[in-house]
């Protein structure tokens, strides 16, 4: 439930942890500033960038993001706790996100879930001991025509069968995309002027 900070473990708050964001990551976050009128609006992109770079966003990372965006760490935590996509502690190398909504359930998602849990020996929101896989379920992934479906990191697996789970998990390339991955978040630079002046004056 979005209003409960449902996390899988409590974030450990270390007071004097060493810095975790290097200059390249900070610069990438800053490159979002021209897109928005406030720095805070770059928060979701920043969280994505950091989770991409570090695997998760822990308390120290939140503090440093807050510094870059000129926010309070509490504001960063407030936002992060709302969204299910971000991890505040270690996760596996690959995250399996299984859809649990109606079409997928009708098409056999429950059996797929049981097969994954059995194969990995873990439950929902847990990470396997060898650190390879974490397993979560999510509501509809908007791929109901391929039900039951799951995401292996970014890769969508369609019409998954419980019997095929063992084979899928053993495949080292099970998260490889079939298409070129765009350089994440590298969009065209906006024009220099982001001032109040309206580039589209009334006719």
């Amino acid at each position: 439930m979005a209003w409960e900070a449902l996390d899988r473990r409590t974030a450990v708050i270390e007071k004097d942890a060493p810095a975790v964001l290097n200059e390249a990551v900070r610069e990438k976050i800053r490159s979002f500033f021209p897109r928005y009128e406030t720095k805070r609006a770059a928060l979701l992109p920043a969280l994505h960038v950091v989770q991409d770079a570090l695997g998760h966003v822990d308390w120290q990372a939140m503090r440093e993001i807050a510094e870059v965006l000129e926010l309070k760490p509490a504001e960063v935590f407030d936002t992060i706790s709302f969204y299910t996509h971000f991890w505040t502690h270690d996760k596996g190398k690959k995250v399996i996100t299984l859809c649990r909504s109606l079409s997928c359930q009708l098409m056999g998602a429950d059996a797929v879930k049981a097969a994954i849990e059995k194969q990995l020996g873990i439950g929902e929101h847990e990470t396997a001991a060898d650190g390879q896989y974490s397993f979560v379920t999510e509501e509809c992934l908007a791929a109901c025509d391929h039900a039951p479906c799951l995401l292996m990191n970014e890769k969508l697996h369609r019409r998954v069968k419980a019997d095929d789970i063992a084979k899928m998990l053993a495949d080292p390339n099970n998260d490889r995309l079939d298409l070129p991955r765009s350089d994440l978040f590298d969009a065209p630079k906006p024009p220099a002027s982001t001032s109040e002046s309206n580039p589209n004056p009334e006719p």
Binding site: L44, T84, P191
Partner: peptide, 12 residues
């Protein structure tokens, strides 16, 4: 003139 950006959500 108009800029256009993709902004990604986070699961809600």
């Amino acid at each position: 003139s108009m800029n256009c950006y993709v902004h990604r959500g986070a699961g809600a």
